[in-house]
Amino acid sequence: MPGTVTAVLTAISGQPVQNCARRSAVLALDLGVDSLALLEVVEALQERLRIVVPDEVTARLRTVADLQDAAVHLAAAARLDATGKAPSSP
């Protein structure tokens, strides 16, 4: 999942992979991801991961770690909803 987030951030921000993979990177300051680019990132992740990112979650995304953690959490919740069972460990 972090790899997918990194790939999407790299494609949309134009920043090097190593910058987009750094969990402490601040989306706006370090990667130049403004509010419009963040919406593009969220939309791309929703399509790739088949998740729904609520607006209130998007509003709280500040760092790469926030984005990765939200993607992992929402993907696990989507699997739970789809199967009715807890997701298995990778």
Rank of each mutant, 00 (worst) to 15 (best):
M1P: 08
M1Y: 04
P2C: 05
V5G: 04
T6S: 11
A7T: 11
A7W: 06
A7Y: 03
A11L: 13
A11H: 15
A11Q: 15
I12G: 09
I12L: 13
G14C: 02
P16E: 09
V17D: 08
Q18H: 13
Q18K: 10
Q18S: 12
Q18L: 07
C20Y: 00
S24F: 04
S24C: 09
S24T: 15
A25N: 12
A25M: 10
V26D: 11
V26N: 10
L27D: 13
L27Q: 12
A28H: 00
A28K: 03
A28Y: 00
L29A: 15
D30I: 04
D30L: 06
L31D: 13
G32I: 15
G32F: 11
G32N: 14
V33A: 09
L36Q: 07
A37Y: 03
L38F: 05
L38A: 08
L38E: 07
L38R: 09
E40W: 04
V41Q: 13
V42L: 05
A44K: 13
A44D: 10
A44M: 13
Q46M: 06
E47F: 00
E47A: 07
R50V: 07
R50K: 11
V52M: 02
D55N: 14
E56S: 08
E56N: 10
T58K: 14
A59M: 05
A59F: 04
R60S: 13
R60Y: 03
L61D: 01
L61P: 04
R62S: 06
T63A: 09
T63D: 07
V64W: 07
V64G: 00
A65E: 09
D66F: 05
D66V: 02
D66G: 04
D66P: 03
L67K: 03
Q68H: 08
Q68V: 15
D69V: 04
A70G: 04
V72C: 10
H73C: 05
H73P: 00
A75T: 03
A75P: 00
A76Y: 03
R79W: 08
L80Y: 14
D81S: 02
A82K: 12
T83V: 06
T83N: 01
T83K: 04
G84E: 08
K85Y: 06
A86G: 06
S89E: 10
S89Y: 04
P90A: 15
P90I: 14
